[in-house]
């Protein structure tokens, strides 16, 4: 499983992490490491070589015009999309593959599932399970995947709902909740698996403007608590205030990366300037 010879000269090659616990983030090793990641759908090249690193505890915001590949990149990180070229590591593990004797072997379905357990994902359209209450949504994965006893999972789920400010909505079905409440339940559901990394795919884009704040507040608290996060967003205010780094993507490549303050105030590239002049 070791990623041999692919690192940049002098860079420490990603090592296999021992154990598969969520908190196995060794200091100094990136939580996410992407090298030359390419993805195409048929003849359409969506990602054309993405090189990025996200350190443990870092909050990275990704911005860019629609169709720039931000969401696709996010989906590649937990192998919802198979990458066509390059290498992608999460917590030292190669995503979706095993490298043995210089050859890549696809991981079995159960192994991919095991990798995803440490990666929480929040979707633009919430994707809550509509036939379950908020509490059941949050309990589902711990009980079914981690095999945690129901009573214990319920306790944890109640605590998580409290953390996102929805303790009183535990017995509501998703259809009875507002968009903002649904998204907060979705965040609680992802947190229930105690992930080491959280991916947010435009979490506030499907929300009415007055509901955006409550979701961003929960995410901000998460960042303060030290969660490693990759956030694809159009909320420049959030990026500036909470983000440790900001990535601008366009046409399937990373155009610019820096601290949010740098990129937003003094974009170096023309494309970044054009994009920001439209959205700010």
């Amino acid at each position: 499983m070791s990623g041999v010879g692919l690192g940049k000269p002098g860079a420490e090659p990603p090592e296999p992490a021992d154990g598969d616990g969520p908190s196995g983030a060794a200091p100094g090793r990136p939580m996410v490491r992407s090298e030359g990641v390419c993805k195409s759908f048929g003849r359409l090249d969506v990602l054309k070589g993405i090189d990025l690193e996200v350190m443990p505890g870092e909050v990275m915001c990704v911005i860019g015009p629609s169709g720039s590949g931000k969401s696709t990149f996010l989906r590649c990180i937990n192998h919802l999309e198979k990458i066509n070229a390059g290498r992608l590591w999460v917590n030292g593990h190669l995503v979706g593959y095993r490298e043995r004797g210089g050859k890549l072997h696809e991981l079995r379905e159960s192994e991919v599932a095991a990798q995803r357990r440490d990666i929480g994902m929040v979707f633009q359209r919430f994707n809550l399970f509509p036939h379950m209450t908020a509490l059941e949504n949050v309990m589902e994965a711990p009980v079914q995947v981690r095999r945690i006893p129901r009573a214990k999972a319920r306790e944890a789920a109640v605590a998580l709902l409290e953390r996102v400010g929805l303790a009183d909505k535990a017995r509501s079905y998703p259809s009875q909740l507002s968009g903002g409440q649904q998204q907060r339940v979705a965040i609680a559901r992802a947190l229930a698996m105690e992930p080491a990394l959280m991916l947010f795919d435009e979490p506030t884009s499907a929300l009415d403007p007055e509901l955006v704040g409550e979701v961003l507040e929960v995410m901000k608290q998460l960042a303060v608590d030290g969660m490693t996060m990759i956030v694809v967003t159009h909320e420049m205010g959030f990026a500036r205030e909470v983000g440790d780094s900001l990535v601008f993507m366009d046409g399937g490549v990373v155009v610019e990366k820096g601290t949010p303050r740098e990129v937003l105030a003094n974009p170096r590239h023309q494309r970044t300037q054009d994009f920001l002049s439209k959205v700010l």
Partner: peptide, 8 residues
Amino acid sequence: EAASALGM
């Protein structure tokens, strides 16, 4: 997708 993202 949500289910597989949860590791199911």
